[in-house]
Amino acid sequence: MKKSADNFLTPKNKPSFLLLHTLGWSAYVMIFAVDNLFFYRDFNKLGLDVFYPLFLAGLFASLLTWPLRYVYRKLWRLPPQWLIVAIVFCSLVVAAIWTPLKNLSMWYFYEDFNVLGLLTGGDLDPLFKWYMLFMSVSYAFFMILVWSSLYFGINYHYRLVNEKQLHLDAVRLSHVAQIKMLRYQINPHFLFNTLNAISTLVLKGDKQKANGMLTRLATFLRFSLDNDPEKKITLYEELKALMLYLEIEKTRFDERLTVKFQIEPQTEALLVPSLLLQPLVENSIKYAIAHMATGGVISISAYCKNNSLHLEVADNGPSNDNAQKALAKHTMSVKSETKGGVGVQNIIERLRVLYPNKHEFQVYKEKQKGYRVLIVMPMEYP
């Protein structure tokens, strides 16, 4: 079972490129048609027929600038100075192709120019010079440059709006995730089990162990309450809080729970969203370890690979034939959590907003027993 990251590269709510492209060149045709009809009518030989050569010129420009969209997509991440050079060069190339086509259209309607003769090598007007095909190339270059500027301007605008929205979503989801996680962590079931374990220790006369458990519970709850949800913390701090939680659970489960850490030293200084691993560990304890009589193991790993931080939480799940119901429940838990549960769904949403198109969240069913959750995110330093 795999959860893939959403693609956020395309700005949200941006109008269709086809719509803007068509409207832009249609406006070009209409503006110059009106210009010729009403402002230069004394010199206009065609009258309303001036629309035809302008329509052809606009059509040629539309077809020639359409591929620029894909060229500019490839050049988008160039440094500003090289991007400007690329835009100027591309605009000049398109203008050099568009100008002859536009001029031939105008001459065909205005001057009865023999376009077919030019294409077939027939007789031409002796006054015709080949360089005349490129007359007004500077005008065409300016128009293509305007189109290019509008293309980048519109995209930059919507990307900026999208980035601002992502930031607002990150702040909102961070607060919501913090509240939901607190509710998830401080649920009556968790507090009841913890306090019940403390009460049992007191009745047994093991006051020192009970006091230690209370201290760890208070420290863990204080971390949850005092932690700023808008800020990331180092993996070292995240693991420190996680160990407080695990020490509480290990007191409850005693020998039934073994926790293994495989943490590469260089990963401890990297930044991660706070309370990222605890819901995954709690999910494993609740739906796997709690249904095992003995031998429960949770493995937590952190390592760097391909310039990314990899975090893994794995459990060995129910391991005997009499635990099929528990195994089924564990399976349903992982599936439902991935789709819409409180803890894991919060992780998915936070990763989606904090690392758009730069993260992975995958849940694997191990071949023998148990589940493994893999989180991949960019390496960030304080």
Rank of each mutant, 00 (worst) to 15 (best):
N346W: 05
D228F: 14
S26P: 01
A96C: 14
R216T: 12
F60D: 07
A95P: 03
L309E: 03
D35S: 10
F128K: 06
M213E: 08
F223R: 15
D254G: 00
R77I: 01
T200P: 00
K45A: 09
N320F: 12
T10D: 11
S62I: 00
W66Q: 07
G117T: 08
M292I: 02
N227G: 13
R372T: 12
K2V: 09
M1G: 10
T234L: 04
D315C: 08
L54M: 09
T251Q: 10
L217P: 07
S284E: 08
I285W: 03
V71E: 02
K231I: 07
S319Y: 09
S333E: 05
V94K: 04
E238V: 05
S299G: 10
K335R: 14
S308M: 15
M106Q: 02
L119S: 02
K102I: 00
E349M: 11
V313E: 06
M181T: 13
P273F: 06
K240D: 13
L83K: 15
E230R: 14
S308R: 14
R73I: 06
N103H: 03
I348Q: 03
E268G: 00
L133H: 04
A210M: 09
N306D: 15
N193V: 07
S333F: 06
F361D: 07
V202C: 10
Y110M: 03
P11R: 06
V342K: 00
H310L: 04
Y72H: 13
F220T: 03
Y72P: 07
Y110T: 07
Y245P: 01
N283F: 06
E111L: 13
R69D: 05
F134S: 10
L221D: 08
V115M: 06
L48R: 02
P279C: 04
L78K: 09
F190M: 13
A328Y: 14
W25Q: 02
A323K: 15
L68N: 04
Q165I: 14
L239W: 05
V334G: 02
N316S: 09
K260M: 13
V272H: 04
A170H: 13
L221C: 11
M135Y: 11
T338N: 14
Y355R: 01
F109H: 09
E360K: 11
T219K: 07
K129N: 04
L374W: 04
F192P: 03
F361H: 03
N196C: 06
D228Y: 10
V146P: 01
S4G: 03
P356S: 00
R352H: 09
D228T: 12
W76I: 05
C304R: 07
I97P: 01
M377W: 01
